[in-house]
C-alpha cells in the first residue's frame, strides 16, 4: 500500500469525445465523484451538431495507475467514443478564457490597465470605478493576471476551464458532419416553419 501512495501524482489533461445526449455529463461527473477521483477543471461543449458529438476536456490529478483507471472507466461508458490523454500523447495546447471584473479608483486603475496591456487582456466594459477584462491564455497566465489584479482592487472572476488540443497535423478526434450539413442547409429553400413565421 505504501509503495503506491509514494508514487508521485501528476496532472493530466484528458480529451473525451461523447454522444451529445441528456445525462452524458452526469455520467462523467458521477464517475469521478463516485470513485473518488479529482476534477481540477472540466469543460464541455457540442462540437458536431449533426452527429451529436460533444467534446469534454478534463484536467485531473493522480498516480499513473489512477490516471489509467480513470481512462479505462471513462472508456467503458457507453456514450463515450474516445478518450485521449493529451499529457501522455505528446505536445498539446491548453487555453482558457477568463472575464475579470475589478473595482478600484485612482492610480490603481491606471496600473490595472497597464498590466492588462502587458497580458494582452482587453477591457470590454468600463465604469468610472470598474473594468471588465477579457483574457485568454494558459491557465497559469490567467492565474498570474488574477493575482496581480487582486492586489489592485476588489475583483470578481469567471473562468471557462481548460480546453485543449494536440499540436501537429494529426486529427485524433475528428468531427465530420457539421460543415456538410451546413452546406446542405444553405442549398435548401426556407422550410415550412420559417414560412409560417413570416
Amino acid at each position: 500500500m505504501n509503495a503506491t501512495t509514494e508514487i508521485a501524482e501528476a496532472t493530466h489533461t484528458l480529451a473525451v469525445l461523447v454522444d451529445d445526449e441528456p445525462g452524458v455529463l452526469a455520467r462523467v461527473i458521477g464517475l469521478f465523484s463516485g470513485r473518488g477521483y479529482n476534477i481540477e477543471s472540466l469543460t464541455v461543449s457540442s462540437v458536431d451538431t449533426a452527429a451529436h458529438l460533444s467534446r469534454i476536456t478534463i484536467v485531473t490529478t493522480g498516480t499513473p495507475l489512477i490516471i489509467a483507471q480513470i481512462k479505462a472507466q471513462l472508456g467503458r461508458l457507453v456514450p463515450v467514443h474516445s478518450v485521449h490523454d493529451l499529457t501522455l500523447e505528446g505536445p498539446h495546447l491548453e487555453r482558457e478564457l477568463a472575464l475579470i471584473k475589478i473595482r478600484n479608483v485612482g492610480e490603481h486603475r491606471i496600473e490595472a490597465l497597464r498590466i492588462a496591456d502587458m497580458f494582452r487582456a482587453r477591457a470590454i466594459d468600463s465604469t468610472l470605478e470598474s473594468f471588465v477584462f477579457e483574457l485568454t491564455g494558459s491557465p497559469s497566465k490567467i492565474t498570474a493576471f488574477v493575482e496581480l489584479m487582486s492586489a489592485l482592487g476588489a475583483i470578481e472572476v469567471s473562468r471557462t476551464g481548460v480546453v485543449a488540443i494536440a499540436r501537429g497535423s494529426n486529427l485524433d478526434m475528428p468531427v465530420f458532419s457539421t460543415l456538410e450539413v451546413n452546406r446542405k442547409k444553405a442549398k435548401q429553400p426556407a422550410g415550412k416553419k420559417a414560412q409560417k413565421k413570416v
Partner: peptide
C-alpha cells in the same frame, strides 16, 4: 494487498479494461 502473491508474475485476462490494475498491478 501488500502481501498478495508477492513473488509471482501475474497474467490477467478480462473483458473489462477497467478491471486491469485496479486493485493489483
Amino acid at each position: 494487498i501488500a502481501d498478495f502473491s508477492p513473488n509471482s508474475t501475474k497474467v490477467h485476462v478480462d473483458i473489462d479494461p477497467s478491471s486491469i490494475n485496479k486493485n493489483v498491478v
